[in-house]
């Protein structure tokens, strides 16, 4: 290692990265939501339709008198699915459409992922926030019990999504089949994700199994934040933090590996 290497301040690099991610965000917004922001509306319409649909179904079946407020339950479930699924799915195909942009040296592969992750997480968060406010205003959803718990749960779920997005994203660069397999897996994972049940409803042996899944812990915490003592939530924040931390390592390693071995055109 020679002494001629210039020392670049971390802050300087960080500023450049922020600039690049900002530029990529603008670029992603244009293609994701279109010039006239009509695509942006789908962010709200989709979960709203789903929530109202489930509400209608439950009312028709006469099951709406069940212990939990079904609207808030469905909304929180779907919003959390939206968060992890969109974030991870969007990273499965992040590199190819942006390949040309990587001719610019500061557009690194991690910036492509990070900008898409930021965009999807904020999209899902804004959607959840606005729909909650709308439903609260119409009285379909009650006031949340503990905002901090909701924020923590949302943060943990976003963190998990980031980890998985980095892993799936970089793996799908290495092999195209990963993206397809992930799509199948994500559908299979949907009923297990904790979005549509409470752990307490399950028999004990199933509870123990299902709590190994990080997203289940997150949605449990989310529901406790929403419903307070109405539900007996099962979760462990420490476990989710541990898993998130452990998953971040292979995620970053894979991104780095892909960044070093991505072939030029």
């Amino acid at each position: 290692m020679s002494a001629v290497l210039p020392e670049q301040k971390l802050v300087r690099s960080l500023r450049i990265q922020a600039r690049v991610i900002g530029a990529l965000l603008m670029r992603e917004i244009i293609t994701r939501y279109g010039r006239h922001n009509i695509g942006f509306l789908w962010l709200f319409v989709e979960p709203m339709m789903f929530t109202l649909g489930v509400l209608a179904l439950w009312t028709a079946l006469g099951l709406h008198k069940v212990v939990l407020p079904i609207v808030a339950f469905t909304l929180s479930g779907y919003a959390s699915v939206l968060l992890w699924r969109n974030t991870i799915n969007r990273c499965g195909n992040a590199v190819e459409p942006n390949r040309a942009l990587m001719h610019h040296r500061n557009v690194r592969i991690i910036d492509l992922y990070v900008s898409r992750i930021i965009l999807e997480i904020s999209g899902a968060s804004i959607s959840f926030l606005i729909l909650s406010v709308v439903f609260m205003a119409t009285g379909l959803v009650g006031m949340p019990d503990d905002l901090l718990k909701i924020l923590i749960a949302w943060f943990l779920l976003a963190w998990f999504s980031l980890d998985m997005a980095l892993i799936i994203g970089s793996l799908s660069v290495l092999s195209e089949s990963v993206d397809r397999i992930w799509h199948v897996v994500s559908y299979l994972f949907l009923p297990l994700s904790g979005a549509f049940f409470m752990v307490d409803w399950l028999p004990t042996y199933a509870q123990e199994l299902v709590l190994w899944i990080p997203t289940v812990n997150c949605t449990e915490l989310l529901r406790e934040g929403l419903f307070g003592n109405l539900v007996r939530a099962h979760y462990s924040v420490g476990y989710v933090v541990l898993v998130n931390m452990l998953l971040l390592l292979p995620g970053l390693l894979l991104v780095r590996y892909v960044g070093l071995h991505l072939e030029g055109e």
């Binding site: 670049q8 971390l10 690099s13 960080l14 450049i16 990265q17 690194r108 390592l249 970053l252």
Partner: peptide, 12 residues
């Protein structure tokens, strides 16, 4: 260190 390395890839 991976994060720092990723940030450090951004140079003038």
């Amino acid at each position: 260190s991976l994060t720092v390395a990723a940030v450090k890839e951004h140079v003038d």
